[in-house]
Simulated scan of single mutants.
Amino acid sequence: MPFRLNPVPGPTLRETLAAADRPLAGMWVCSGSPLVAEICAGGGLDWLLIDMEHAPNGLESVLAQVQAVAAYPVTPVVRVPSADPVVIKQVLDLGARTILVPMVGSEPEAQAVVQAAHYPPRGRRGVGSALARSARWNRIGDYLTAAADHVSVLVQIETLDAVGDAAAIAAVDGVDGVFAGPSDLAASMGLIGQQTHPDVVAAVRRVFAGAKEAGKPFGVNAFDPAVADAYLADGASFVLVGADVALLARGAEALAGRFLPGGVTTRPGY
């Protein structure tokens, strides 16, 4: 008789949030490197966001990173590149338990995302658990019947139009949390590159208010510690406070500033 595993190893972000007695701090993993992902996983943060939208990640590299961080007490989230139901299905099949879907702009779009993440009759995710790491190749006996317990869905609100629908988006059954994206939100407001502009911050807070009205957790990206602290004071349940590539870039610049004459950060031939 084959060995049976139950339940799926590791919590979803929904479960991590429910068990937490404080806001969760996390970081982006954008390098595409399983080694870097593992280094970040051991850093002591609560969660990691493995990014497919703005990073050089495909299915194989995401799989390797999910495997690399599995040994650590950190909750991985995969941001898919879009709401494409095929990609959502593939990312869930490779074993991601929590996904973040960018650019969700309306209640119907949020409903479509939830449907893509769940099996019939609730949704339209294709059934291939016998072939997939998600069910450990059919070693998790109740994977199909308890599918909703194995998946957590977050949606990202990052346009001004979506801000107005934040409460309706958050209230969709199957949406486990909303995440505000200040960078694209600023761009949609004609304030590109000004994530901390007062109007952008006010829009982020409107996202928070909508999620709170729906009774759902809400989070945000804030690399500036002072801005992150302010959003935490506003009640954010989970925040991203850094990124692997940004930490490496700033660290390299700091070394150049310390050891090169005059703090020069470029060299002939570069």
Results as ranks from 00 to 15, higher is better:
S152M: 05
A252Y: 05
D51F: 04
R267A: 14
W28T: 03
S61V: 05
L49V: 02
S82L: 03
M1T: 11
G95K: 03
V77T: 14
T266S: 14
L94M: 12
G177K: 01
A187P: 01
A135S: 15
V264P: 05
L247G: 09
V77W: 06
E253C: 06
A83I: 03
W28C: 04
G44F: 13
Q67L: 14
V104T: 11
R4G: 06
V151L: 12
G95S: 05
A203F: 03
Y72W: 14
C40I: 07
A228V: 00
A20H: 08
M1L: 09
G141A: 15
C30N: 09
K89W: 04
V29R: 05
S237P: 03
V104L: 06
V86F: 15
T75Y: 10
V153M: 11
E15W: 04
A243R: 00
Q195M: 03
L59E: 14
Q65S: 15
Q156H: 06
A130P: 08
Q115D: 14
N57K: 03
P81W: 04
V245P: 02
R79K: 13
F218E: 09
G269P: 03
V91Q: 13
V66P: 12
P11M: 08
V77D: 13
G32L: 08
A168R: 12
A147C: 10
L160N: 01
T12E: 08
G174H: 02
R267G: 06
R136K: 11
T145L: 10
I88W: 04
Q90T: 11
P73Q: 12
G215D: 09
S188E: 00
R125Q: 14
Y231Q: 12
K89L: 13
D93F: 04
P85T: 03
V78H: 02
L144D: 12
P120V: 08
F3D: 11
G257V: 08
G219Q: 02
L17K: 05
W137V: 05
Q65H: 10
R136D: 10
T75I: 12
L92W: 03
P108G: 10
G95F: 02
G26N: 07
A202M: 08
Q65C: 13
D229Q: 14
G177Q: 02
F179M: 01
A166R: 01
I99T: 09
G219V: 00
S129C: 12
C40W: 10
M1E: 12
S33L: 08
L191P: 00
A20Y: 09
G251Q: 05
V36A: 13
M27A: 14
P23H: 09
A256R: 15
I39F: 11
N138C: 11
A130T: 08
G242M: 03
A222C: 04
V80P: 05
L13T: 04
